[in-house]
Design a protein around this nucleic acid. Structure first.
Lengths: 131, 131
DNA sequence: CTTGACCTTCCAGTTACTGGAAGAATTACC
DNA sequence: GGTAATTCTTCCAGTAACTGGAAGGTCAAG
């Protein structure tokens, strides 16, 4: 599969896909014509990268998460340790996202565009006064 | 409140706080000595920025979300429209985060570090085969 | 057989910070 | 009161993670 198709399947621009190769996140085969040739596994990685980056994980965190898949020979305790660390992070993100969700839901349901000077949107957005 | 204290309260480095001022996300008062002076409202904004950026929202998206608070005189239909758009985005992020969470939970619970060549971690991480 | 879409590499520009220098203001200690 | 450490200021340069564009090779359609 060439880069255009991989781009469609993963939701990442071709530019970004080449960049991820540059920094060593994946290394697709090359066809005889020199074109990159992406396997299904490559596409899975790209799709994962597209998601994880959009969820605020850094490229280095993504590299670690991909390594959980790549390093199947890694001691399972290492894998579990990394996974557990990331799980805590995910739970934090889930909580924060739900708080933001509730705030915006409240805004949609109750905001009338008035000038109330004590509008508490930000307090709740910022998590200072979680609902 | 000076920048060091605002940094502590918001979880953002002072450098980043000054940067956010440079690009117009907030404009704290200045004390007589020239030091920046942050109000509680400023700190709420900073805390919100810290969270929203960590959840994968761009600075421009954050600017829009802050505007929901700032522009209280904006027509409520505009506010609601923006909020609804962001709500869809948040729901997508929540779904993706939960999928990633389930994958890692599975990994912690069942991975034994073996060499199974058909290890389906990535398929599930990438959302190609959601659980 | 050429036109157009898609691929290649390379180099420069953008976004969102991040580090460090040089100097002024405040606080902490003797 | 003096001075040393801390915290603040601005400015300028560097990094991370892309993103755009040029110059050119490959390939499928008409």
């Amino acid at each position: 599969m060439n880069i255009g198709h991989a781009s469609e399947k993963s939701g990442l621009p071709a530019k970004t896909i080449r960049y991820y190769e540059d920094i060593g996140l994946l290394k697709p085969d090359r066809s005889d014509n020199g074109y990159r040739d992406y396997s299904m596994s490559d596409v899975h990685k790209l799709r994962f990268l597209q998601r994880a980056r959009g969820l605020g994980f850094s490229v280095e965190e993504c590299r670690q998460l991909l390594a959980l898949y790549e390093d199947k020979d890694r001691a399972s305790s290492d894998v579990k340790s990394i996974a557990r660390t990331k799980l805590k992070e995910i739970e934090r993100k889930l909580t924060e996202l739900r708080e933001l969700q509730h705030t915006l839901q409240h805004l949609v349901a109750h905001c009338h565009g008035d000038q109330r000077p004590d509008c508490p949107i930000l307090e709740r957005i910022s998590g200072t006064r979680p609902e």
